[in-house]
């Protein structure tokens, strides 16, 4: 077993010997297999190595004029959780995620990241996947990833970008402009961009949009791996899917209020699907 391969696929941190799983070693192959839904790779990584970070919303309020997007939202997501935000269109999911990603400034209230605040040095800063791809159409896939890697002072950006491109299955198309990509490929490059700096918190706003069933399986598996590696994940979702099966926590929003919040299995599904606790 070549030692160099024994790394977490997303953060390139070395895995402990006990964590070795033979199927991880051939990254590209493993990905191809999984993207066909053929193989389920299981990956266990020492959680402490990612310096787990949680999210705390303290009476967050966002007002657009007289319109409330969020009303006094308070809850906490503990480190390592995989939380799903559910709710109808316009219930405030996107606003909440954009506030968590520090893209939108809350009108009142406080956002904090218990155990490690986000600072300029990279990984503590949340990774964010939004409705748009958030990458440049006029640049190639590789140039995009390199740009964001360099902006965030990622170590050896070229190797990191290549790793991620292989991971999301775009390595063969790395020199094509993003403009030429299909919707699903764009979603993959968008996810790669969000992961480039090895975030310990990942925020995804309806990430399954534009992905085919194979892509959704791929995404669910990738998120599971990341979550197991200690990454805190917050996803906004509609309905039930392979991705929602990952949830350890479900929060339902309605008209800017948290109307349900649970961690237990049975009611979790209810919140996701029906909106009842």
């Amino acid at each position: 077993m070549p030692l160099i391969e024994s790394r977490c696929r997303f953060c390139t941190r070395a895995l402990r010997d006990t964590d070795h799983d033979p199927r991880v070693f051939l990254n590209t192959r493993a990905f191809l297999l999984r993207s066909r839904g053929a193989a389920q790779t299981k990956l266990t990584v020492d959680q402490n190595k990612l310096s787990p970070t949680g999210l705390r919303f303290e009476s967050i309020e966002k007002r657009y004029g007289g319109l409330y997007a969020l009303r006094r939202v308070s809850f906490e997501i503990s480190p390592g959780e995989c939380a799903v935000l559910a709710g109808r269109n316009g219930s405030g999911k996107t606003t909440l995620l954009r506030i968590a990603g520090q893209l939108v400034r809350p009108t009142t209230g406080k956002l904090s990241f218990p155990r490690g605040t986000p600072d300029a040095t990279g990984s503590a800063r949340p990774g964010y996947v939004g409705h748009s791809t958030m990458v440049y159409d006029e640049l190639t896939a590789e140039e995009n990833l390199l740009l964001f890697a360099r902006l965030q002072n990622v170590e050896s950006p070229v190797a990191r970008a290549d790793d991620l491109l292989r991971e999301v299955g775009l390595y063969e198309r790395r020199a094509s402009l993003v403009r030429t990509f299909s919707r699903g490929m764009r979603q993959r490059i968008a996810i790669a961009r969000a992961l480039i700096h090895r975030p310990s918190v990942l925020l995804l706003d309806e990430p399954a949009t534009g992905l085919d069933p194979i892509g959704i399986t791929w995404l669910a598996n990738s998120l599971r791996d990341l979550n197991k590696a200690g990454c805190t994940i917050v996803i906004s979702l509609h309905g039930e899917s392979e991705i929602s099966a990952l949830a350890t926590r479900a929060v339902r929003l309605d008209a800017g209020n948290v109307i349900a919040d649970t961690k237990t299995g049975a009611s979790l599904r209810d919140i996701l699907v029906y909106g009842a606790a």
Binding site: R98, G101, Q102, L103, R125, P126, Y128, G130, H131, S132, T133, M134, V135, Y136, D137, F148, L151, Q152, R193, H197
Partner: peptide, 10 residues
């Protein structure tokens, strides 16, 4: 493509 947001994040 909302790239301004990704720049602000980065």
């Amino acid at each position: 493509n909302d790239t301004l947001s990704s720049l602000r994040l980065a």
